[in-house]
Simulated assay, not measured.
Amino acid sequence: MVIPVHDLNPARRTPWVLYALIVANVVVFLLTPGTTGSLTGNVPLAELCRLEAFLDRFAAVPQELIHHRLPRLVPTGETGVGPGGAGCVVRPAGYEKSPELSVLSAMFLHGGWLHLLGNMLFLWIFGDNVEDRMGHGRFALFYLVCGYAAAYAYALLNAASTTPLIGASGAVAGVLGAYLVLYPRARVWVLVPFLVFLPLRLPAWIVLGAWFALQAVYSSGGGVTGAGTVAYLAHVGGFLAGMLLALPLRPGTTQPPEPPRIAFGRQARRTW
């Protein structure tokens, strides 16, 4: 998997919505129970119980989205000792939860620093140009629509799942899909892990096309062991939604200028 670090596609206006989304994601992550221990992996039981209760209330659960049926018992965030030892206490829910609104709150929740930073990196690199093309208001609406499309795409095919869905990945995947439609030939600097990290400048259609192909393979059950912890199908749904929503904007999109060629690590002048 390549790591994008910069695209050669200058934006004309300041991406205020992009900045607000990044700040909101970071702030919510810092306020989420268990954040302090997620960096070291050493999270006390009491913190895990608070996190479980927090996610049960604010994360999107496929079974709730499709059947609109909330569980009879939910974690309270407290710890207790039962026949099997110490664990988290569950009781009937003392609050009302809207499954539809949980999709919105789930977009700003992340499972760890790597989850957060990975999403924000892709959003930072590719989001400014999409916002520039759409405008601030339409980009904000586009981002939310892609997030909802991603969550419901996953839920429709996993209607019995009670595993919480969290993360901005689906909405960010929509941004990547839109970028691929609008700026397929824009050049992107990436790091390719091959013994060391090799810097390469590749067209966006290769970088984002390969990313989408990887998500599609994983969503079908292939890929590395443990891939089931990531909702790859949500990435696919968000990406396709982003592509479809961006298609009407493609005819009037100004493409970035062709960058100079690179020869032996230097920019080479064109002779033609």
Rank of each mutant, 00 (worst) to 15 (best):
A227N: 15
P199K: 06
V207L: 07
G84L: 10
Y232S: 02
A46N: 06
F194P: 00
A11N: 08
A178C: 11
L195M: 00
A210Y: 07
R57Q: 13
D56Q: 14
L233W: 13
G37I: 08
G222E: 14
T254L: 15
S161V: 06
L208K: 00
A60S: 14
P92G: 07
T271V: 04
L249D: 14
V236Q: 03
D128S: 13
L182D: 01
G238L: 12
Q255I: 12
V236M: 05
L104H: 07
G82V: 00
V230F: 13
S161N: 03
E258A: 12
A186V: 08
G87E: 00
N158F: 04
L45W: 13
M134F: 15
A210S: 14
M1W: 06
L141V: 14
P199G: 07
P62W: 11
T76A: 06
G85L: 03
N9G: 02
V103S: 02
G137Y: 14
G223I: 08
A246D: 13
T163L: 04
P44V: 12
V190C: 05
R72H: 07
L123D: 09
Q267L: 13
P62C: 11
A150W: 03
V224H: 13
P260T: 05
E131A: 06
V17Y: 06
H235W: 10
H235Y: 09
R91P: 00
A155P: 04
L73H: 07
I206F: 06
A24F: 09
A186E: 06
P203K: 08
